[in-house]
Amino acid sequence: MNERETVKSDPQFKYEVSKMHGGENLLRCFQCGTCTSDCPIAKFSETYRPRQIIRMVQFGMKDDVLKSDTLWLCASCFTCTDRCPQDVEVASVIRVLRNLAAQQGLAPQMFKDQCASIMESGYAYRIPESRLKKRESTGLPPLPKGNAESICKSLKGVDFVDHVQGGK
């Protein structure tokens, strides 16, 4: 049978992204490729291409974009944002897409761990006791403590955070 592969497309997706903070100028992209050619990650990754991601969003390829692993490669260096001739905040568009992917449960484990750690201690990493002792011996003042209860309470109702907390 000669079945042609069709790409699932959501024509509303580009509007959904443009409505979010940082995604506003998405539709202005005229595909010049400056973002990809200046992207330090694209220089060494065989798959990561910001221009292509922007185009896929314009085409409504929601699933393909949100499920793609390469989305998480961006180093958030903002070179693309600073150099885009059309004022597309490329790095922020990538962030919007990652946020949407995270809402679907697609965030890498690393982010869930950091979120859990912040809610427990205020710090994104679990700082070992030995480090705290070493601070004292090198004459550094005690590390300010996190107020876990207050942190958790102020983050209540935030989608990703509730997810991490619920999944604990």
């Binding site: 965030a107 982010f111 979120c115 205020g122 107020n147 942190i151």
Partner: peptide, 24 residues
């Protein structure tokens, strides 16, 4: 002067939740 209490600036969570970053 030391911070009275501490929480992460929020940047590590920006990729997964812009909202959480803003609050932190």
């Amino acid at each position: 002067v030391e911070m009275p209490e501490f929480n992460c600036c929020g940047l590590p969570l920006d990729p997964v939740s812009h909202e959480a970053m803003l609050i932190l």
